[in-house]
Amino acid sequence: MQLNVNGRTLEAEATGLATLVDVLRYELDLTGTKEACGVGVCGACTVLLDGRMVASCITLAAQAQGAQIQTIEGLGDRELLDPLQESFITDGGFQCGICTPGQLMAAKALLEHNPQPTEDEIKHWMMGNLCRCTGYYQIIESVANAANAARGDR
């Protein structure tokens, strides 16, 4: 099957029931996307399909054909980090890092849809991205600070 990932068309050998996360990780070597709970609850596997965040662990790769898929690998790199990546680094938005790609993709979708979210809006939007390390406060701060940075407050 063909998948459009981070602007590139990639060929993957995948059968009908392969989940998107498995195909990304084990067929396309895009291991930045993680799988944790496997049932769509924790958000570690969050990727964007046509700009909307979905759980790639309960989305079949076949369902993602024809959509623009964005993963952490497309967010920004060492040379040019996304403001979200910058703020997660400076404000303690990650510790062990396993939920971080999912948190960042969820936050990316949030800021695309609502560039200046309130704290409650961030909490509500990010509620489906579990983190066991940070207790969330520094993630929320990171997202808020990235939004401010985009506005030029920082």
Partner: peptide
């Protein structure tokens, strides 16, 4: 559920 589930 959550936004992510409601998206699908």
């Amino acid at each position: 559920a959550t936004v992510r589930i409601r998206n699908s």
